[in-house]
């Protein structure tokens, strides 16, 4: 029984995370999917550089 509870619990957390993240991105108007991949790359490069020069 405990195995079922753990597995179902983990699945619920996973699904909740995916759905929650999608809703958050929609509300905050953040890019998702392939657009997020591209947008994230440029931002990360600049952010990394700024941190290294602080």
């Amino acid at each position: 029984m405990w195995e079922t509870i753990i597995i179902v619990g983990l699945v619920v957390i996973f699904v909740g995370f995916i759905v929650g993240r999608a809703i958050y991105k929609r509300i905050k108007k953040q890019p998702s999917g392939e657009c997020a991949c591209c947008a994230g790359k440029g931002d990360k490069l600049v952010e990394r550089y700024r941190k290294s020069n602080k």
């Binding site: 931002d43 490069l45 990394r48 550089y49 020069n53």
Partner: peptide, 14 residues
């Protein structure tokens, strides 16, 4: 537009 960093000069460039 897209940003990136060039690092091969004496100072880094966006």
């Amino acid at each position: 537009k897209k940003d990136g960093v060039y690092k091969k000069l004496e100072e880094k460039i966006i």
